[in-house]
Design a protein around this nucleic acid. Structure first.
Lengths: 118, 118
DNA sequence: CTGTATCCTTATTGATACTG
DNA sequence: CAGTATCAATAAGGATACAG
C-alpha cells in the first residue's frame, strides 16, 4: 500500500540500480561472469551476503534471471533478461564514460586506475 | 595518495553519481531548474545540507559549474558544463528507461507513480 | 536567498559462522 | 558451490539553528 511517487523517471532507474555493486555486477554478468563464486573472486570487496542480496533484487526487478541447474555440487547461473538488456545497453555507455573520466582524472593528477575484471 | 582502483569503468561513473539526489539534480538542472531554493521546492525530501553537499561534489567533478552573481539577496545558479553534458545525455536515456519501468510496474500491479517536477 | 555547523537517526554494507 | 543467519561497523542522509 506504500505508494512510491517519483519526481523524475531516473529515480525509478536508480532505485533498480541502488546498491553499491549492482551496476558492476550487471556489467560482469553481461560479459559472461555469471556465477556466485567467480563474481566473488572478481570483486574481492563484496561480501557474500551483499552479493546475494543485490543479485536477488535484480532478479525480482526482472533484470536478471536465476538459473539453478539442480546439480551437485550446486551450480547456479545469472543471466541478463531481455528486459534487462534494455538497461544494460545504457550501462555500457556509462561504462565507457567512466573509462574516459578515469583518463581525464589521471591527466589531472588524480590517483585513480582501472584494473581488468572484464 | 589513496589510489583508487576500479574493476570496471562504470564504477567511476557511479562514484560521480553517488548520492541519493545527484541523478535527479542533474535532470532538473539540465532542464532549467538551477537554483538552490527552487531545487529544494522541487524535491521536498532533500535536506539543505545534502543538497549543498551533492551540488558541490558535482561541481568538483566538473559536471556542474556554480555561478555566483554576487547580488543581494544572494543569487547563485548551477549549470551543466560541457563535459557534464556528455554524462547528462546518457542520464536522459536512464530517465526514459525509468519512465517505462514505472509503467511496467504499474501494469504489474505495483503501486508506483510519477509526479511532475520537470 | 544561499549556504555552514552540529548533532542524531537510518540505511547499507561487512565479517563470520553455519547449512543443503 | 551456493546460500542463510546474525551481529557489528560504517556510511549516508535528515533536522535544526544560525550566518553572510
Amino acid at each position: 500500500m506504500t505508494n512510491t511517487t517519483y519526481h523524475v523517471g531516473i529515480e525509478a532507474t536508480m532505485a533498480v540500480l541502488s546498491g553499491k555493486w549492482k551496476p558492476v555486477l550487471l556489467c560482469l554478468i553481461q560479459s559472461g561472469n555469471n556465477r556466485n563464486g567467480s563474481l566473488l573472486r572478481a570483486l574481492p570487496d563484496v561480501s557474500q551476503k551483499v552479493l546475494t542480496e543485490q543479485l536477488r533484487q535484480l532478479v525480482s526487478d526482472g533484470i536478471l534471471e536465476r538459473i539453478d541447474y539442480n546439480e551437485k555440487p550446486a551450480r547456479v547461473e545469472y543471466h541478463v533478461t531481455e528486459y534487462g538488456s534494455s538497461l544494460t545497453k545504457i550501462l555500457m555507455s556509462l561504462c565507457h564514460w567512466g573509462e574516459q573520466d578515469i583518463r581525464r582524472k589521471q591527466a589531472a593528477g588524480v590517483s585513480v586506475s582501472l584494473g581488468t575484471a572484464l
